[in-house]
Design a protein around this nucleic acid. Structure first.
Lengths: 155, 155
DNA sequence: CTAATTCCTAGTAAATGACTCGGTTTTCTT
DNA sequence: AAGAAAACCGAGTCATTTACTAGGAATTAG
């Protein structure tokens, strides 16, 4: 039940973009260096985020990435879904409106109720928190926002 | 963010034991066949569950497995923790009381708040539902409780 | 004694995760 | 026009994890 690096790094990168909103396009290199992530790997994640409309890119020199929408309109759920796929602890109760009844005889599945509750609780947290919310909470806590090199972990 | 088969199969097996409570030890073979799972694989999961005290075993002919406690006292969280490890979307906000501050400068981690909320929401669902609850809800729904072979999915 | 059963260790094949590499295209700056 | 700074793209790789399988040893009811 862990996120992969795609979700974690992607969330970091999106928050970095949100923090630097208004400065014009931010080159990936800067994010990669300041957050201690591999630039070419981040590139792949940004590509997916761009295709999903969560970021915009500007090519060429002085180019970089920008948020695709206001931070108030980008939820953690948006980001996680793009990078980790539809949300759900098991395939058959997954988040996609299309693939509703993967289970034909789902009524005879005792544990299904549990997985559905779990899915709902996860989505409600993820869809209820925006990039703006996180930035706000961060400001309230008055964190020093240090670089990653100085830290012990890589969330 | 999916469970592995260990969590899914383990939950199934535990529910099977709960349903057959009072019948004496249930041999693994029966569970494996009726739920369509590999018996030797299940065996490994049961071994972990036994070491954690969630099931008891009776060796020899006419042996099998029994719940280690009343179904009212076994939560989904108990089972998932044994089979999938401590709960948490990222290592550094994991569920273990011991490994609290894996992050030394955790205050400077903007997304940490999010992961903590997510962890809490997951644990509160998982720890709030017992095997007894699930059986009860199942009975209320009046499900036919068919075998797995007839079904389209393997939750 | 024999058959049924749990217990234990090891091995393995496939999938996934977490990247790297090399080159192409676009665009700003000089 | 030239050069450099980016984003873009597709493939390849290496380690880890997952989901098992295999085979035998120990235990116990009948």
């Amino acid at each position: 039940m862990r996120l992969s690096t795609k979700g974690r790094y992607g969330m970091r990168a999106m928050l970095a973009l949100a923090q630097r909103r208004g400065e014009g396009p931010v080159p990936l290199k800067e994010i990669a260096v300041s957050k201690g992530l591999s630039e070419p790997y981040l590139e792949q994640l940004m590509s997916e985020l761009r295709k999903a409309g969560l970021v915009r890119s500007v090519r060429g020199a002085q180019g970089g990435y920008l948020l695709g929408r206001d931070p108030e309109n980008i939820t953690a759920g948006d980001i996680i879904r793009v990078l980790e796929g539809p949300i759900g602890p098991v395939q058959c109760v997954v988040d996609l409106p299309g693939s509703d009844d993967v289970c034909d005889l789902a009524d005879s599945c005792v544990e299904r109720v549990l997985w559905e509750k779990l899915r709902d609780s996860i989505t409600s947290v993820l869809d209820g928190i925006t990039l703006a919310n996180l930035l706000e909470e961060d400001k309230k806590l008055g964190s020093p926002n240090s670089n990653v090199e100085e830290r012990g972990c890589q969330p």
